[in-house]
Design a protein around this nucleic acid. Structure first.
Lengths: 211, 211
DNA sequence: CGCACTCTACTGACAAGTCAGTATAAAAGT
DNA sequence: ACTTTTATACTGACTTGTCAGTAGAGTGCG
């Protein structure tokens, strides 16, 4: 992990290395459990270097959240501006989620920790950020249900259920691994779960009464 | 909070008070974030008293988990030994979950923290504990699907989705509160969500093609 | 030189855990 | 009945370790 530390071949700026290391450490241990020394070690520097680039642990954490949420925003934006209708759009969004979370496993665990906290460190900002996206989604669902392209369900509660299911799969992956013995983040297992969720949602949402 | 401290009228043993206080504190802040002093304050004692009853922070934490998981085991056992069939049994289980989590809000957040951790403190034991219950559920679902009393879905993935949805509703309740403005743990909101989830599951699982 | 960056060495705060006691009450001895 | 002993429950003061954050001295590069 630190084998490349001495090679000066631009192994990304050390600021970025630190950000990446911090993301992993915060995901593994949460804000309180995370140690600056551990982050520094992961990044291949000494811990005062962290405090040179980011003024404090708190600000480093904020920087991590912002980078992580920023990435997510971009991909989600893309997934909802496809012009698809009915269940196809729902499926596209779920699929985008799966693909993003698959590549950003730490993201989920950090966000979830924030969500649990409640009085959390960045909860308010994150809510601010998610709200417009959620409202968009609810508007879309309502429209499609009115138009008969989706069966009628409470849109907000539907979003909550989908969010809960998808998020949990990733945030609790290690627990599931312990339970079933196989790695849930393995591509095969992931596809199986995605297919199962899609089928479930399809069965509940698609207007046609297919098998 | 400490107003009853001097009254000797058995305000529950202080061991139990400590256990209760610790449950809340660990739920709010996680293992690392929790402070023994804070737990002690909640329980109305000084922190060495904690270490008198429980040898260390770690052991106090384990005691909390055990008490919490024990409570859950009893209720779950009751909910699955009803002899119901098909969707009714699924609904009964989901309902039991809702009612237990409603009364034990800290439970969810503690368990979820463990699940995220991965290399967690009690993950292995908890997996050990959940596995037989999960296997039971999967067996039940498979049987009912074979018998045509439930539509066919991957039983394990179905359980995962249900678990994710229900658990998230409670563990992330404070985040949702921030998002929607209303309290998700209020009885009315809770019933609405439960009804929505049931409808969704019913639509996906009940064999009849009713409206 | 001066600037950006990283290091070693250190500090101050704070938290877990230890310890030597005090208070109270139940048991045991006379 | 009354002291003495023993166990339980709890506390204030202390020790020890750890961690975030600071100071200041390099190092290398334009």
């Amino acid at each position: 992990m630190s084998s490349a530390a001495s090679i000066p071949l631009r192994p990304a700026s050390s600021r970025d290395l630190i950000l990446l290391a911090a993301r992993a450490e915060f995901a593994d241990h949460g804000f309180d459990g995370a140690r600056l020394q551990a982050i520094a070690a992961r990044a291949g520097v000494r811990h005062p270097t962290l405090l040179y680039h980011f003024e404090s642990k708190e600000l480093l954490y904020r920087a991590v959240i912002e980078s992580v949420v920023g990435d997510w925003a971009v991909e989600t934006e893309a997934a909802i501006s496809t012009g698809l209708r009915g269940f196809d759009q729902v499926a596209a969004l779920v699929d985008a989620g799966f693909r993003f979370f698959e590549r950003n496993r730490d993201f989920v665990r950090i966000v979830r920790r924030e969500a649990i906290e409640g009085g959390g460190r960045m909860e308010a900002q994150m809510a601010e950020f998610v709200r417009p996206f959620l409202e968009d989604a609810v508007r879309f669902l309502r429209r499609e249900m009115r138009g008969g392209r989706l069966r009628r369900h409470d849109p907000l509660e539907l979003m909550q259920v989908i969010y809960g299911a998808v998020f949990t799969y990733f945030s609790d992956a290690r627990f599931r691994a312990n339970l079933t013995g196989e790695d849930p983040l393995d591509a095969r297992a992931l596809r199986r779960h995605e297919r199962a969720l899609m089928k479930l949602l399809g069965a509940a949402l698609e207007p046609a009464t297919g098998s």
